[in-house]
Design a protein around this nucleic acid. Sequence first.
DNA 1: TTTTATGGTTTATAAAATAAACTGATTTAT
DNA 2: ATAAATCAGTTTATTTTATAAACCATAAAA
Lengths: 94, 94
Amino acid sequence: MFKELDPLLHSELRLAIMSLLISVEEADFVYLKDQTKSTSGNLSVQIDKLNDAGYIEVERGFAGKRTRTVCKITPVGVKAFEAYVESLRSYLNL
Amino acid sequence: MFKELDPLLHSELRLAIMSLLISVEEADFVYLKDQTKSTSGNLSVQIDKLNDAGYIEVERGFAGKRTRTVCKITPVGVKAFEAYVESLRSYLNL
DNA sequence: TTTTATGGTTTATAAAATAAACTGATTTAT
DNA sequence: ATAAATCAGTTTATTTTATAAACCATAAAA
């Protein structure tokens, strides 16, 4: 009847991050913070979780002299996101 | 950009309950437990929360000699559910 | 050179989800 | 008749989460 909702994606901020990354294919911390209107602490934690799960790839580097953390979704992440959407369909009728 | 996701609905079990009630218009505890495959403890707690929020109406009565708890969605609940679905659209592109 | 801003991370706290344990009736079996 | 099992839940305890607050290091501005 109801499919399980991946708890990693069933979280407002993490879902927003993935939603952005799936269409943009690369985004940095500042951009994500801006778009999601999250605090940096929260964003940092949620990025780590997505990274640990292999849903996104994180590269910490520099842009000129300033640090820059760039995120991009992985194939695993794309699949998980799609599966999540499919699962949601069993709850809503879309 | 991203709309807020009503935390009361952004919960696997509560969403399942609401999803059932929106199409069925009345369901008892046993039926909900069956359909959602939840434990009765969890179900009891989540029903209370939805009731406290005014999203559902709960009537505790009897069916013959046994107790029977019947739930039905309220207009407020229907609106909330629809708003939740609309909000979700900003995360997924449906 | 002190202050302020940038780009984060770490830690603490509050809230949530969930299961386990319990309650009180009702059958069923002995 | 009574002990055991089942039903329909509720309450309580525990684990996980989400989130913000506090912090840190570097860089730019005053």
